[in-house]
């Protein structure tokens, strides 16, 4: 009889322990709000962050990690209102995904000391303003650009290259500098033409810039931000090669996209979430590079192999065998 009682007591204790674990987890999932200038399916900037949040959710489990998002926040004042709303709803982390949102964060973050904010691409966490709850993230896009550039130089026949960038700042500038350096490492006499569109979203102008680059002799194009889908369409239509950034863009033009620099934001998000769970709300800059896996080069075998075979057939590449 005593034995049975003991077993019941132990079983009860175990079940209470298990239940409390369950409660602990379901009562307090980590909650993230994500504000983006474009959309989760933009094949670029916003999509890469969305994919990272899905990865984290898979790793932590849906019961432990929740996230919500606001799309098309290209008007900064709208974004600021959304950031403030999310903060007042008690989210653990509010990600303002765009360098245009920094000034708004300096207004909002001090009002919500228990919420963490993150933004990028930047290396500024506003510690000079005494703010302690802002994180920053920054991909060293020049590293990815360099790899793309080196590949581009190997494949270009005309040795003329076209870059279609949004605004000359942040990742776009870093990527472009890296792309140029990568080409020059192989072909120092290369001609690299750079156009800035003045917008992250003007697909029509990006498309026209791509047409112009090809008219000027370029057979390789690259560029960053969501407006580049217009340029990729032109590359596809006119048979130019494309080098992508942000996400793997090969699905847009499988014959033309040689490689893409995939920005793996999860590399920044994982340690950021760990810090917040330990009670550290900000102040750290997370860098993404080839060494830490924050940048990955995804080569599209279909286009790359196809182009290499074409080069051998056309005699552009001569494969020599020593006798």
């Amino acid at each position: 009889m005593m034995k049975l009682k003991k077993i019941i007591v132990i079983l009860t204790l175990i079940s209470i322990f298990v239940l409390s674990l369950g409660f602990g987890a379901s009562a307090k999932p980590f909650r993230v709000a994500f504000i983006m200038p474009s959309n989760i399916n933009d094949f670029a900037w916003s999509q890469s962050m969305y994919e990272a949040l899905l990865t984290i959710q898979e790793e932590m489990g849906k019961e432990n990690f929740e996230f919500v998002y606001s799309e098309s926040m290209f008007i900064v004042t709208d974004a600021a209102a959304a950031i403030r709303d999310y903060a007042s709803e008690g989210y653990d982390l509010v990600i303002a995904h765009g360098s245009q949102y920094g000034a708004s964060l300096t207004d909002i973050a001090p009002d919500f000391p228990n919420t963490s904010f993150a933004w990028g691409s930047t290396a500024n966490v506003f510690s000079d303003l005494g703010i302690t709850n802002i994180f920053a993230y920054e991909p060293l896009a020049e590293q990815g650009g360099y790899v793309n550039g080196a590949l581009a130089a190997k494949l270009s026949e005309s040795n003329i290259y076209g870059v279609i960038g949004p605004i000359e700042t942040g990742d776009a500038k870093r990527y472009t500098e890296g792309f140029k350096a990568g080409i020059k490492s192989i072909k120092p006499d290369a001609k690299i033409n750079v156009t800035w569109i003045g917008s992250y979203s003007d697909v029509a102008l990006a498309s026209e810039a791509a047409q112009t680059h090809i008219d000027a002799g370029a057979d390789v194009l690259t560029g960053t931000s969501q407006m580049t889908v217009g340029a990729i369409g032109v590359a596809k239509q006119r048979g130019a090669l494309w080098f992508g950034y942000d996400v793997d863009q090969s699905a847009l033009a499988p014959q033309n996209v040689i490689s893409s620099v995939d920005v793996v934001w999860a590399i920044a998000l994982r340690p950021m979430i760990e810090m917040i769970q330990k009670g550290e709300r900000g102040g750290k800059i997370f860098t993404l590079n080839l060494a830490n896996g924050g940048l990955k080069i995804i080569v599209n075998d279909e286009a790359f192999v196809g182009k290499t075979i074409e080069d051998i057939v056309k005699g552009n590449i001569e494969v020599k065998v020593e006798k």
Binding site: E71, V203, A204, Q226
Partner: peptide
């Protein structure tokens, strides 16, 4: 835009 000049669609394509 969507089926002659750009041949893509994206939210707010007309900008």
């Amino acid at each position: 835009l969507s089926i002659a000049l750009l041949n893509v669609f994206q939210q707010n394509l007309t900008n």
